[in-house]
Nucleic acid binder design. Structure first.
Lengths: 142, 142
DNA sequence: CTTGACCTGTGTGTAACCCACAGGTTTTAC
DNA sequence: GTAAAACCTGTGGGTTACACACAGGTCAAG
């Protein structure tokens, strides 16, 4: 099957299929006359595998590694365990960051309810933002 | 003051100062002889403002808009309220996504404790990943 | 004077896709 | 058979907030 059919049957976009192919996760044959990528049912199974791994939080590069191991007959399971155990605390940390951000935002919206909007003058750009307590803890990107 | 001094006094990297300057958040004068960027104490105050806004979750582009409003004498406060009120539910949604992902990862690690690693065969790449329940809900990127 | 620090403009990288474009091929409808 | 729409390819740019690299110029300290 061609790109769109695999995408449709796998429940992803054709762009995603092409992306996974470029990243080496999928390896289609080529039609000899027009160069179109031809995927087999095995590729569909592999796409399902990729999706499972994505849902578990594995990155595309990590899935590529896992598939390399498997294709070489080596067990990727120790790698899989290690990657996930390493990634989980990172996800937890990210959740904590976002939770702290959400609370800051909620506090700001709460206190801003009773504040006038004001107009910029020589000393102030926006009193709302300037009224927010400036703690010296580093702020993380979203 | 030059880039490094502003960065030091603002508690950020020189790279960050240069980035904010390129994005239009800071507008230094130029030394007439060597073209070096010269920042004033007003720029330092503006950097503090930017940091406050970043901590509240505003993006660099949004802060740019806010500063534009203020510099034109318009009150950016309605914009600020709107942006934050719009962004907060997005942050909450993101937290929920990551929480769901963390739980999936924890479940997987838990169930994998009692599973052997196995070796790839013709039908299986990695039994750990393949054993994970495949629900049809869409998975979001990290 | 020399060396190290700093400055500039410019370009690349990060992650996982998404979109656009030019040009070629296939499919569909008439 | 023809025309239009759909699809395919390779290639390049975009998204976010920085961080880093490089070549070349300038400044500060010894």
């Amino acid at each position: 099957m061609k790109v769109s059919e695999l995408a449709k049957r796998g429940g992803v976009t054709a762009e995603t299929v092409r992306h996974y192919t470029r990243e080496g996760l999928l390896s289609p044959r080529r039609h000899p006359d027009n160069g179109y990528q031809l995927f087999s049912s095995t590729d569909l199974e592999r796409l399902h595998f990729i999706q499972r791994a994505r849902k578990l939080g594995f990155s595309v590069a990590e899935i590529h590694d896992i598939l390399l191991h498997a294709d070489q007959g080596d067990s990727p399971c120790p790698l899989v365990r290690d990657l996930l155990a390493t990634r989980l605390p990172q996800i937890r940390a990210r959740i904590a960051e976002l939770e702290a951000l959400a609370q800051r935002m909620e506090q700001a919206l709460e206190s801003w309810q009773h504040m006038p909007d004001g107009t910029p003058d020589g000393h102030s750009l926006c009193r709302l933002i300037e009224s927010f307590p400036d703690e010296s803890s580093p702020q993380e990107a979203l």
